[in-house]
Design a protein around this nucleic acid. Structure first.
Lengths: 374, 374
DNA sequence: CTGAAAGCGCTTACAG
DNA sequence: CTGAAAGCGCTTACAG
């Protein structure tokens, strides 16, 4: 192998005991702006090739002869070269960064989507830049500058409600975009979600079918919870049920909020036979509060959650809920994005997916048969 | 205000109805590599100043005259200019990116730390690049390349156990580093955590003090859980208690795992009077499983959790646990990093912090008094 | 299959 | 307080 062409300076082997110390860099510390770490030029000079060839080895190894490939890989190894993706991204206009905006990760549902996104994007070499918007639409806009200034190759947003400025700027940026967790009649670009309105309706139909009539709600006052609630109330109204009492709770929802707001609900509306909650933690709180008050679940009161958290199947009684496949949302969003980014031609036409949901019936909505049917 | 000096081409006002359309860019689309979005040069030419002055307006506004400041800000507004931080980072060697590596965010404790880190770093203009390592030390190494290639200004790691290669490369990179969630006798750089061994010891002392003697453990088989368990067993051994039965569960821990592994523990060791768990979800599972079997908690069996999750105070009976201030860990780690990054002089000398922990006594470890002490 | 030149969009380091 | 020049470390777009 050819030797370095540039003068070898500096870089004293500072850590003798650490085993295989990478070869001293041939980097001439001439420029006052040099950073000290190896560059393509260093690798190229050690390997006796041009910088372009090093770049090809990294990005299009199939276009390099096997012999050259081996030599360059050796040089990369020896120098401990780590590509600088800031430079690479600037030159190629591909940052390999995807911005993911979620309200919070302190919620197992968004955490699950984020985890799946991160894993799936990682497989294709994309890193996730995390943006936490809170539940406040205006913060999303604040985040936008920070995001756009990184020139991400793709953006994943939670929800479909955004300010006009956000929409305009996003559209103008031309960056591939996936809205998640919600359906929308007018997606900005791609969309992976489910209909919260349909969830509300389906829950209503399900519980009506079970014979429940005196409904009470404990719902978070967030956008999507509101939509589910509307769907639920609309369906109930169609069956002549109106004036459904509602306890509105702040996000993020917790078991404690469920307990306390159910207590308040009970004061206002004593004779309920079913309480529908906008999340499983709320529902868990309702169940415990009921039990502590001597109200038997489900015999005297049915309780319905949302999200099908992992504890729902384990509680006593087990909790009926609505299952959303967050992992599927994350994976599909990631794949949409990667397909769009990497295909020069117009990518697949299907860019809107409804992942649906399913109602999981468990004990908390299954009255034990009082009328024997033998 | 001076007019643009460059010829105005292209950029047809494509969205008439969108309200205030930004001024057409004076960007001459000469280069085949142009991206289409405004650059400092565009802003400079509109404002009639040099690119340097635009850069100063963005980064050191106090060094620019008020008049110039206003003119440039107007030009930024009109062009809808968004700085390109890839270019900025390359030139300044400050990416304003911090890599945060956690095993998973599907765990409310790490999610809390990550949330606090993201919020606190955001205040100083840093973005978080999320790395999920799983619970596998080897994946951490895989992530390392992805991270280093972004040239982050700082790195936050979870835990203090890393492979030798990881340590060497991290040290060599010279990037400010905070290890979190754990104490270490030999931190690589900065450290914000608490002693898992001390937690184990304190839990043992606390429960021994309450009179419990027949211990059983339901513990996750992860690094830090192992350390807590060792501390616990060592303290018990000092009091002559040995052969403590253990059920080892995989991560991530869930309520369901708690139920099933407690069932297994019961088979092997029927006469326990206290079960110590490595997380609150496990403990919750133990409590429910016990109750379903007619074992009264805490009268026949005490249960201790870890993490003081928000539901611990709400369960029935309320769950005793060990509280860790994850938010404090996140905030302090963020501040350490920012101080180090932004201070040219050697930053504060205190770079290792033990945030401690506290034992939260609740009903699940409080036997109702059988021997009246009146 | 390989390389020389130019450029991505900023900021540093001077100089005035 | 402001600007001209050079450079950060890559990749594009050619050319051979």
């Amino acid at each position: 192998m050819k030797q370095a062409k540039k003068a070898i300076e500096g870089n004293p082997p500072s850590e003798e005991g650490s085993g295989k110390t990478p070869a001293a860099l041939p980097h001439a510390r001439s420029s006052p702006r040099a950073t000290g770490s190896a560059t393509v030029a260093d690798v190229a000079s050690i390997a006796g090739v041009s910088a372009m060839t090093v770049s090809r080895v990294l990005n299009n190894p199939e276009r390099v002869s096997p012999r050259t490939l081996a030599v360059v890989k050796g040089a990369i190894e020896r120098t401990g070269y780590v590509p600088n993706l800031l430079a690479g991204g600037l030159a190629s206009r591909r940052s390999r960064l995807v911005a993911v905006v979620v309200p919070t990760i302190a919620n197992s549902m968004f955490a699950q989507v984020t985890q799946a996104l991160t894993d799936e994007l990682g497989k294709s070499g994309y890193q996730v830049m995390l943006g936490l918007s809170g539940y406040d639409v205006s913060r999303e806009q604040e985040l936008l500058d920070a995001i756009l200034s990184r020139r991400p190759d793709g953006i994943v947003l939670t929800g479909t409600v955004h300010t006009d400025t956000t929409r305009t700027r996003l559209l103008k940026s031309g960056i591939p975009l996936v809205e998640t967790w919600d359906m929308s009649p007018s997606p900005m670009d791609m969309l992976v979600g489910f209909s919260h309105e349909q969830v509300g309706e389906a829950v209503a139909e399900y519980l009506l079918g079970k014979g429940y009539r005196r409904f009470g709600l404990v719902f978070a006052n967030d956008q999507r919870g509101d939509v589910r609630r509307s769907g639920l109330l609309a369906a109930l109204a169609r069956h002549g049920i109106s004036d459904v009492p509602l306890e509105s709770v702040p996000v993020p929802t917790t078991m404690g909020l469920g307990k306390r707001h159910f207590a308040k609900l009970l004061e206002r509306a004593p004779g309920l036979d079913v309480v529908v909650c906008s999340s499983d933690p709320l529902a868990q709180g309702v169940v415990v509060e009921a039990q502590e008050r001597g109200i038997a679940v489900p015999d005297q009161l049915a309780v319905m959650g949302f999200g099908d958290y992992d504890f729902a199947a384990e509680l006593s009684p087990t909790l009926s809920s609505v299952s959303i496949d967050g992992k599927a949302i994350g994976i599909r969003a990631a794949r949409f994005l990667v397909a769009r980014i990497e295909k020069t031609e117009s990518a697949g036409s299907e860019t809107v997916v409804d992942v649906g949901f399913s109602i999981i019936e468990r004990r908390s909505t299954s009255k034990s048969k009082s009328k024997s049917t033998t």
